[in-house]
C-alpha cells in the first residue's frame, strides 16, 4: 500500500527545509513569477543562459513542501543542461505526474523521481509542476506571470 512517506520522502523534506539555489540571481538575464491562485503558492525564477545552456538558475518564494522541493530539485536537475534537454526533462516529469499509462524510466530521471508519489494526489500535481510551467514560459521568453489556473 502507498505510504504517506512515499510522498514525503526524506529528499523532499530535506529540499523543503534547505532548498538549493534559493535566492535572487544578480544579475539575472531573465526572471519570471509563477503563482497558484488556489493555494497562494508563489515563486520567482531567475535564469542566466550561455548560448543555449542554462548556466545558472535560482528561485525564491513561498509554498508547500512539494512546491519548494520541486523547484529546488528542478534547479539542481537542469543547471548546466541545454534548453532542449531541459524541455525533455519537463515532458518526462510532467508525464510522470499526470499520465498514469505512460511507463517512465525512473532511473533516468535522477532525483526528480522522488516526486513520483505526487501522482497519487491529483490535487497536489500543480504544486509540483508550478516551477516547471514557470520555467517553460521563461525559456520561451514570456514576460507575463504564470498562473496554474
Amino acid at each position: 500500500m502507498f505510504d504517506i512517506k512515499d510522498l514525503y520522502q526524506e529528499v523532499i523534506v530535506d529540499h523543503n527545509r534547505s532548498p538549493r539555489n534559493f535566492g535572487k540571481l544578480d544579475p539575472a538575464g531573465r526572471t519570471l513569477e509563477g503563482f497558484n491562485p488556489l493555494c497562494g503558492d508563489r515563486l520567482t525564477l531567475y535564469l542566466n543562459l550561455d548560448d543555449d545552456h542554462i548556466s545558472d538558475i535560482s528561485f525564491d518564494g513561498h509554498g508547500c513542501a512539494i512546491s519548494i522541493a520541486s523547484a529546488s530539485l528542478m534547479t539542481e536537475g537542469i543547471k548546466g543542461k541545454s534548453v532542449q534537454d531541459a524541455g525533455t526533462i519537463f515532458t518526462d516529469f510532467h508525464e510522470l505526474l499526470t499520465d498514469s499509462a505512460r511507463v517512465i524510466d525512473l532511473a533516468g530521471m535522477g532525483k526528480l523521481a522522488v516526486l513520483a508519489g505526487v501522482r497519487e494526489y491529483p490535487s497536489r500535481v500543480k504544486c509540483a509542476t508550478l516551477c516547471w510551467h514557470t520555467l517553460r514560459a521563461l525559456l520561451a521568453g514570456d514576460h507575463a506571470p504564470v498562473s496554474t489556473e
Binding site: 504517506i4 493555494c39 497562494g40 508547500c64 512539494i66 494526489y121
Partner: peptide
C-alpha cells in the same frame, strides 16, 4: 510551525481525515 497547511491536509487525508486548507 514548519508545516505548510497543504502538506498537513494531504498527510491527514492519508489517514482518512478531511480538513480544508487554503485561504
Amino acid at each position: 510551525d514548519g508545516i505548510h497547511p497543504h502538506d498537513l491536509g494531504t498527510i491527514l487525508d492519508h489517514d482518512g481525515i478531511a480538513i480544508r486548507t487554503g485561504h
